[in-house]
Amino acid sequence: MARRTMQETVHTTIRHKARSGESSPKSIGFLVILWLAILFALVFLTVLIVTTFIDGWNRLDSRLFTEYPASDPEDAGARPAILGSLWVIGTTALMTIPLGVAAAIHMEEFANRHHWFSRIVEVNVQNLAAIPAVIYGMLTLGAMGLMGVSNKNQVWVGALALSMLILPVVIIATRESLRAVPSEIRQGSLAVGATPLQTVVRNTLPAAVPGIATGSILALSRALGEAAPLLLLGGLVFLSFDPNGLTSGYTTMPIQIFNWTSRPQAGFHELAAAASVLLLVMLLAMNALAILIRNRYQKRW
């Protein structure tokens, strides 16, 4: 009891000090700098988005969705790139989410956290999340070389690189949301005779689904906007066809945008701006979905 009171006193003094410090010139100066930083970032972002919109407005029409890339910007569209992005991201989701969720469940619910192996895995997952995307492209390139896959422009190869890129993020997000499920839920389930596996499948995991879904969607939207690893894997190609399978050739929207911006003709720059707007809309839609799921299904215990 005495400890509790002491803690409270310490807290109040800290709070008090902080409040009196808020009006000091130093703090106000710092606050102004923070506001300017935010303002600068927002203005920069707005200018970027508005100019992209203005540049691409004329080409934001059905041709973007129905036409194939062509040497004449008037006849060119991003159809293979849009379908390619959907294929690659869909495959990435299928490869990553089950694996990532399973890994997180093992680490959080079953593994002995003090075992040296678990600790190595733990540290590695944290570190892998911070590795630049292009490294995963090189890793996949090396793996394909060892496996003797000469045609690297295949949907599954690209998806493999993006999977490795976002797997750590999915694992971390899943672990966080599993950790947020109170242990009383698990103990209650175990107390009425459920096995640990039944507890995870019927109680812990369903309770954590909103967090898992949000984390996974955000990770996938990172993969959707990624170009660097796919450029290394030969994703910068002209396609005369719709990507239509796991072994089909592909190109994705960020790569198509990259391709068009490096062309000399102004018409392609407009097209690149239009495709950027489309990519932006897709990313915003995915983020909105993530926020929606979180707000709707997240529980406070």
Binding site: N153, F238, L239, S240
Partner: peptide, 15 residues
């Protein structure tokens, strides 16, 4: 691009 109108099922990639 033009060949697609002749043989739609042949997939050509140009890197």
């Amino acid at each position: 691009d033009a060949y697609r109108d002749v043989e739609a099922d042949v997939q050509v990639t140009v890197a």
